[in-house]
């Protein structure tokens, strides 16, 4: 099963043909209108208008503390907006993957994945679904073990299986690969891209890594000063080649916005505040 998990590796030409739609429920659109969020007197987001079409892979980038997680958590309903409207999938149709795996240390791997199975299934059915989801992320043989024996990357794959087992139509990812080493990151990116292509859910990926955003997303937005400062489409064929001239050009545009004119203004603001 492990090689299967890697068959969607970004550099492999066969990945394009791996599209399956067996159990997929398809993606669900997301719409934010006039969204604002503040914590106490501290505004974090303001006047965000964002339409994410069904099945789109959106990446959200921005400086640390700019409100990326807040935006994501508002989309899946973990935070309620201070103003504006959020229209998005809910319940087991919307899943979130956190920066940490957040596995229950006292539950076996398969039971951790079972947490994501929607209610109303028999225990045997739920277990079966959990095992299938584990197979999808290449960890079928670890079902009976405790989370504490897994590596960081494997734990995140279990968390991905838990998020996918309900066949969500919206998957929110809050820097889930942030803590992984470079090689494991690339493997996980390939895995993510593969399951997204197979299942067709709408994906919202928060990342601080611009090249990761450009490798995976259909569209990248940049959050700055609580608003969307940049919204660019990444119309490049998949699987994408790292370091291609188009990607380099887009990366340059995003980094310019981040560090060019914006940087000095922000530094000034912070020193005043």
């Amino acid at each position: 099963m492990t090689d299967h998990a890697l068959s969607g590796f970004a550099f492999s030409p066969s990945a394009a043909s791996a599209v399956r739609t067996v159990h997929a429920r398809g993606g669900a659109p997301v719409a934010l209108r006039g969204l604002a969020k503040s914590f106490g007197a501290k505004p974090v987001l303001s006047g965000i208008d964002l339409e994410i079409p069904a099945g789109q892979f959106l990446a959200v980038v921005g400086r640390s503390g700019c409100g990326k997680s807040t935006l994501l958590r508002t989309i899946v309903g973990l935070e309620s907006p201070s103003a504006g409207v959020v229209a998005a999938a809910r319940g087991d149709e919307a899943r979130i993957m956190f920066q940490e795996p957040r596995l229950l240390p006292w539950a076996r791997i398969v039971d951790n994945v079972r947490v994501g199975v929607p209610g109303g299934k028999t225990k045997a059915d739920a277990r079966e679904a959990a095992r299938a989801a584990l197979a999808e992320v290449g960890l079928a043989d670890r079902a009976g073990e405790w989370p504490s024996v897994l590596s960081g990357g494997q734990k995140q794959r279990v968390a991905l299986a838990r998020a996918l087992v309900s066949r969500p139509r919206l998957l929110a990812l809050d820097e889930p690969l942030g803590a992984l080493d470079a090689l494991t990151r690339i493997e996980m990116q390939a895995l993510l891209e593969r399951v997204w292509r197979e299942q067709g859910f709408t994906a919202v990926l928060v990342t601080h890594d611009v090249s990761e955003a450009l490798a995976l997303a259909d569209r990248v937005i940049l959050i700055e000063n609580g608003a969307i400062a940049l919204d660019i489409a990444v119309d490049l064929p998949r699987p994408r080649r790292r370091g291609s001239p188009e990607i380099a050009r887009l990366e340059g545009a995003i980094l310019d916005q981040l560090f060019g004119n914006g940087a000095s203004e922000d530094a000034l603001k912070e020193s005043v505040a």
Binding site: L78, G91, F98, R102, L104, W106, A107, V115, G116
Partner: peptide, 27 residues
């Protein structure tokens, strides 16, 4: 708290949250 938030986000009822997250964590 992160596990409790995960449990809520994954649709656990208060009873399930208690049995699967709070009690084992407090044990």
């Amino acid at each position: 708290d992160q596990l409790v938030e995960m449990g809520r986000a994954y649709g656990m009822s208060p009873a399930t949250l208690f049995a699967k997250v709070v009690l084992p964590g407090a044990l």
